Simulated scan of single mutants.
Amino acid sequence: MKIAVMGAGAVGCYYGGMLGHAGHDVTLIGRPQHVEAIQRDGLRLDAPGVDAPVRVTATTDASGVRGADLVLFCVKSTATESAGRELLPFLAPQAVVLTLQNGVDNADRLQAVLPDHQVIPTVVYVATEMVGPGHVKHHGRGELVIGPSPRSADVAAALRAAGVQIDVSDNVLGALWEKLLMNCVYNALSALSQTPYGRLIDGVEVRGAMRDVMEECLAVAAAAGVRVGPSMWNAVERIAVTMPTQLSSTAQDMARGRPSEIDHLNGHVVRKGAELGVPTPANRVLYALVKINEARMQNA
């Protein structure tokens, strides 16, 4: 299968690396410092059972998606529409696009930009990090959940053969909200404290704060008619066990002085809660604190 990864950061390089290691023709589209290293040395995939360079194509240009059967769309949620417009002139008619992103509405937003292509919403649970130019390190998990479509079975088979755990779900919106809940619980707290999940959860009153955020997310989801799984607190605690060394993507963005996706995480819950008449004070405080820190860093 010919595969392109739009937004080859930590998530995109991990899944692109796994597919390239399995023998697929993979093109990574990413930032210059990573592209130059990958062009020179290959992508270093540091994961269980694999710590070796993977030969893939790398480019900074969206034309790298030309001819791809499958596109892994891994850009920040803030760039969904702009990146989609970059891809549009080069997408093959048969191309399937998976949205490996945080947030719950990226597939709908991208589908509006790519009305003639098949866009499949995707939920990602993986802990990864770019530890150097062209070097992706896997910290834990790695499973995907995708929505149903005429091509979902073929896509899932290719990913499973590459060692990726993947499920096709008829309730992918519920799965997206479950992931949104996890991000709302962990991301801002990890960012504001610059603390990985394993240590974060045992901080003073942190579990209580996490429960407050979780309950608000569940209330907003229920008001929106979204069905999520039971025992979400057990799932919250499991994140700290399965990804103990992971700093949230928001924490990584904040440490590098980059804008985060907080508008599409706690910010989304705050806006949706206001729309549905559901109070979200805990999410509002975390959202406000991250935005204050982003503004401070941008003005420094």
Rank of each mutant, 00 (worst) to 15 (best):
Y287M: 00
D108T: 14
L28E: 00
R55P: 05
A92E: 11
M214A: 13
V5K: 10
L100N: 07
G20P: 04
L28D: 04
L181A: 14
D212S: 15
A295F: 08
E237S: 13
G16K: 01
D69M: 08
L289F: 14
Q101S: 06
K137A: 01
V168L: 12
Y197F: 15
M232L: 14
G49W: 07
L173A: 06
Y15L: 12
A127H: 00
L70H: 10
D167L: 11
L91P: 09
A255T: 06
H264G: 10
L189P: 01
H264C: 11
T80W: 05
M18Y: 08
R40C: 12
Y287Q: 01
V228G: 12
H138G: 06
G147H: 06
T242Q: 09
G49Q: 05
S260M: 02
T250Y: 05
L19W: 07
A222T: 10
A251Q: 05
N293S: 14
A188H: 13
G229V: 08
L72Y: 03
V96P: 07
T280L: 03
E205R: 08
H21R: 12
Y14D: 07
A300K: 13
A224S: 01
A224R: 00
E275N: 08
I3H: 10
G12Q: 01
L100R: 07
I201K: 05
N102L: 11
G49T: 04
C184D: 07
E261S: 13
F73A: 00
G257P: 01
A282C: 12
W233E: 15
G267D: 01
W233P: 08
T128K: 04
N102A: 11
